[in-house]
Amino acid sequence: MKRAIVVLVVVLASTAHADRWRRAMDRWQGGAWLHYELTGMQRVGDAFDCDACAAEDLVLAGARLHGFLGANASIAYHLGVDIALGSTVRDAGFAYDLALFPVGILVRAGKTSIVGFGAGIGGMGGIGTIDDALTFPVEMTAEIGIGRRVRVLSRARVTSNALAPTRQSAASSIAFADELDAMLGLRIGRYYDDYGFPSGNGYFVGVSYRELAGGSMLGLTIGYSIDLAMPRRWVEERDAEYDDHGRRRRRVRMPSTQ
C-alpha cells in the first residue's frame, strides 16, 4: 500500500512537472542577432584633457553576438558578447575592445524590432597608444525594422573605467561615466518569415562616434547583420478545463501570433 502511494505521488508529481514544463515551453520565446563590423575612426576636434590620447585613429573589426529569452511576447532577458580587434593605425598599436553583457533586459516591438539594455564587464586598450582599462559598460541597443528591406541599427554605450587613471572622466559630453561610444546605421537586406520565424539579414553602413581617452573620434562602420527570433506569441491564462474523462486540458492557449 505504501509503495502504491509512493508510485501515485511520483506519477502525479511527474505529470504536474511535465505539464508545467509544457506550459513553460509554450511561453518561452527568444531570439538573437549577430553583427560583423568594421569600424574606422579618426580623431576630431581638440582633445579637452588629452594626456592619454596618443591615438589619432582607431580601426576595429569584430563581432557582436547577442541573444534574448523571455516568458512573454514583449519583455526578455538579454545577454551578449562583443569582441573587436584592430589597431591605432598610424601609431601602429594593436587595439582591442571586448565586452561581456551577462545582465540585461530587452523589449520587443512589432515583428522584429527590439530595444535592449545591457550591463557588463570588458577590457579596452591599444598597445602604446590607449591605456589598457578594465571597463564596465552599460549599453542601449535599438534595432527597428522598417518594411521588408530596411533596418535601423543603433547603439549607445557609456563606460566606467578602472585600472587606467588617464581614462577617468574622459568623455566631454557626459559627466556620469568615463567614456562614450555610439553607432547609428542603416541595414539594407531582406526580411524572411520562413516557418513563421521572423528573421532578416543584410549589409549595413553607419556613423560611429566615440569619446575616448579625452578625445572625440568620428568614423564609419560597415558590416553584416543577421537577426532571427521566435514569433511573438501572446499567451492567455484561462481557468482549468477538463475533458470527458476528467483529465485536465492544457490551460494555455495562444490566440494570436504577430
Binding site: 549577430l34 531582406r190 524572411y192 520562413d194 528573421s199 539579414n201 553584416y224 543577421i226 537577426d227
Partner: peptide, 8 residues
C-alpha cells in the same frame, strides 16, 4: 544553408 543563415 537557407535564409537567413545563407551568408554565415
Amino acid at each position: 544553408l537557407g535564409a537567413p543563415l545563407n551568408d554565415i
